[in-house]
């Protein structure tokens, strides 16, 4: 809870400074502080100050996003080939992909990664699997999805999550 509040304050302060751009005008800084405090109070009252509102981002996860960007570029190439060829040969397929993640954040990251990669899109989120629509049948390789799922789960893994929830209760 305290960690989430701290992350929220840091994010909000960065956002305010980024949008206003005045680092040395006291009036604007005071107004900004007031609005950050109001937001903090409201979210405390709504009881949404938890690991989901202010997720923890560890530096290693940047590697995941770099990997994802490469994947997106590769997938884009194959989609663009289909779009621009005169007889676009596509073979739309649907398939079910199992989800291993237990946290909401992990599930969302995995499903969003699938959707971000062009050619595959998460249609329905189930309890234990996702229905995926793919543009080419060769894109529905179970091993690829497993690889992506493992990486996504690793990227959002939060070593302190269990301890924090225990500490709060």
């Amino acid at each position: 809870m305290v960690r989430s509040a701290f992350i929220l304050v840091v994010v909000l302060a960065t956002y305010w400074l980024m949008l206003s751009g005045y680092l040395y005008k006291p009036v604007l800084l005071i107004v900004g502080t007031i609005s950050i405090l109001v937001v903090l109070g409201l979210s405390w009252r709504m009881k949404i100050l938890d690991a989901e509102t202010a997720p923890y981002f560890h530096g290693k996860a940047a590697g995941y996003y770099a990997w994802l960007f490469v994947e997106i570029t590769k997938a884009n190439m194959s989609v663009i080939k289909a779009v621009l060829s005169p007889d676009m040969e596509i073979s739309p397929t649907t398939t079910k992909v199992p989800i291993k993640q237990s946290t909401d954040l992990g599930r969302v990251t995995f499903a969003n990664s699938i959707t971000l990669t062009p050619g595959t899109i998460a249609v329905v989120m189930g309890e234990s699997n996702i229905l995926v629509h793919a543009l080419f049948s060769e894109m529905t390789d179970a091993a690829d999805f497993k690889d992506m799922g493992d990486r996504a789960g690793w990227a959002v893994s939060d070593p302190m999550l269990g301890r924090i929830e225990k500490g709060a209760s």
């Binding site: 884009n76 663009i80 739309p92 959707t115 971000l116 062009p118 595959t120 899109i121 629509h133 543009l135």
Partner: peptide, 9 residues
């Protein structure tokens, strides 16, 4: 559904 892929690109 296939159009959605193109829009995502």
């Amino acid at each position: 559904y296939t159009r959605m892929h193109a829009a995502g690109m």
